[in-house]
Simulated assay, not measured.
Amino acid sequence: MLDIDLLLLSRWLTPVHDFLVPRVGAGARIGFIPTASSIYPDQTWLDLDRSSLRDQGFEVVDVDPELVSAATFTRALSEIDAVFVSGGNVFHLLGALRHAGADRPLVDAVRRGLPYIGVSAGACVTGPDIAPLALLDDPSEAAPLTSTVGLELIDVTVVPHAEGTVGGRGRIDRTRQEFADRPLHFLRDDEALVISGGTTTVIAG
C-alpha cells in the first residue's frame, strides 16, 4: 500500500477535524464530490455534510465531475487541500467517475498526497472491487459501468453501516456469507478507518 492519507467513514463526520488539521491546517479548502447522490431527488444529507464540514472550520467547494470537463476537474483537484467524496450509490459513483474521465486524476492526486475523506459510497469506492456492495446499493441505478473494479487505493472493500442501519442487518449478513472469499472490512456508523503512513487504524466515528 502506498503512503497515502485516507479517512473512511460510514456515516458521521466527527473525526474529520482531527484527521485533517494536522495534515493541512485549520480552515483548509475541501473539494466536495457529490456524485454518488446525484441520481436521488432528496439530497438532504449532502447539505448536512457540507454544514458539518463548515461547522468544523473548513471551506467547502463543490467539485462535481459530472458537470465539468476532465481537465477542469483535474485542475480543481490541484486547488484544494483535501477531497471529500459523499455517500449515495457506489455503482453510480464509480460509473460516473469513469464516464467523466475523473477516476484516474482523483487516484493520482491522492497518491501524490491529497488527503481523501470518503463517506459510505465514498469509502466503498476506494477498494479493489465494489461488487460485494450489490446487496446494499442497486447496480441498476448506476451510470454505465462495465467493470466493478474500484479505485484500488486500499486492498479491502469497505462495507458501511455494518450494524444494519441502511437496509437492515439481513443484507449485511448475506454480504458476509456470499462474499466470504473477498477481503472485506465491515464498518459501523460509530467507526472510521484511518489509512496513513502505511498503516490502517480503526477509530471512533
Rank of each mutant, 00 (worst) to 15 (best):
A102Q: 12
L67I: 02
G31V: 12
L145R: 01
R176C: 06
G88L: 02
A123Y: 05
G164V: 02
L151P: 08
G101W: 15
T148H: 03
S52E: 14
L8W: 05
T126V: 11
G150P: 13
G127Q: 08
L135N: 06
P115K: 05
P139N: 08
P15N: 08
Y40F: 15
I39D: 00
A143H: 08
W12M: 04
A180Y: 05
L2M: 00
F58D: 05
F32N: 00
D47R: 15
P41C: 11
G168K: 01
D137M: 10
Q56R: 12
S37I: 00
E191Q: 15
V60Q: 02
P105C: 13
V16R: 02
S140I: 10
E66Y: 07
L94H: 07
G150W: 01
V85Y: 11
L97W: 04
H161A: 09
W12I: 03
V166G: 00
R112I: 00
T44H: 09
A102F: 04
R54D: 04
G88Q: 06
Y116T: 10
A36H: 03
R182P: 01
L153T: 07
V156S: 02
D181R: 13
A162Y: 09
I154Y: 07
R111H: 06
A121R: 03
F91S: 04
P15W: 01
A121M: 01
A131H: 08
A82C: 09
V24M: 07
